[in-house]
Amino acid sequence: MTELGLTHFLILSAFLFACGLLCIATKRNAVGILMGVELVLNAANINFVAFTRYLPGFRIEGQVFAVLVIVLAAAEAAVALAIILNFYNNRGTVDVDQANDLKG
């Protein structure tokens, strides 16, 4: 049984990042896309926290970054949900494929 190292966390975060990107690319529901974005942001957060644990000289910064990103993700979700709700009120759907009035 090998000790858990930085690499394991980086692989986990890379996997989470890939899941998030896949979710963004394939979901047609706007809320689903937002969930994919949250996965991507949390993948970055895992990186920050892992670096805090394993890199000397990065003790405080990484944790501060993680807290800032959590707050920012909440703000972004609030704004995005408000905009999705506004779209729903106008169109009666949250399917991004139905957002096709603007093109050319």
């Binding site: 905009i83 779209f87 106008n90 169109r91």
Partner: peptide, 8 residues
């Protein structure tokens, strides 16, 4: 609202 949705 569609513009805002695409942008966000």
């Amino acid at each position: 609202s569609e513009a805002a949705l695409k942008y966000v």
